[in-house]
Amino acid sequence: MSDHVISDARGGLFRRISDWIFRRPNAFLILLFLPPLLWLGVVYIGSLLALLAHAFFSIDEFSGFIIYEPTLSTIAQLFNPANFDVILRTVLMAAAVTIAAAIIAYPFAYFAARYAKGKWKALFYILVMLPLWSSYLVKVYSWKLILAKEGIISWVAAKLHLTWLLDALLATPVLGGPSLSISYFGTFIVFVYIWLPFMILPTQAALERVPANLIEASSDLGGTPGQTFRHVIWPLALPGLIAGSIFTFSLTLGDYIVPQIVGSSAFYLGQAVYTLQGTAGNIPLAAAFTVVPILIMFVYLSIAKRMGAFNAL
């Protein structure tokens, strides 16, 4: 690098291109933008719109061909009790997972942001990054091992003489099942586990931006720890939690692998879409189903943006 501190002015093609670019910053901007915009704008958004358009077509009940005439009948099918149940179940699961993830993530993020220093801070960061980036399927698989009837949870429960508690949990109507890996509890635990790091990171980032002297000022002015939390820390941490909830909510809405591997046979949105486009060949209804998470996420994102969550990302 050192021998290029002052470079000789170049002539030739490069110089001319460079000068041309320098005089036309807008053209340069367009040149930079064009390839990624073409990829995302045409390939991605194009496919997305093509898919969404299908939601307004319907399928011929007898031949199974798609009728390319605009209709709202496919969208209306979403409100059939069977289909609506799937949507409701998925949204409730996503909400429950988000709340649980926030409750578990907050203390960890607070500790890592306020009390961990130097090497410890780096360690905490790695402790979150490793599970975040380790293989999704490996993580799901590990819970299959844990939740199995002959697995570690049953073993621990037996050792602690708590088998009755586990049995009572599994006997819960609707939510229970023959074993944890075939119940709603299982699906819930696995979702929380898999998306938890997505909640921790933005929460911790938001908490780290809370100036320590603000907290000290609050206690100097006579605020109890509870009041300091409610009036100083919480409002500043909220954008981080909301940023995290974007991930936990959206990822749960669209996931179809977890309920397929761990859970009762009840369908979730992702599975419905997967089966409809695959074996059932009903692309219009599959497309109508995908409209639901897109709509939910757009509403969610616009609320999040208003609450300043994007700055915490």
Partner: peptide
């Protein structure tokens, strides 16, 4: 930000 399944099915139908 959008669930992976949407990216997946959109590309597949395209």
């Amino acid at each position: 930000a959008l669930p992976g399944i949407i990216t997946g099915i959109a590309l597949r139908s395209a």
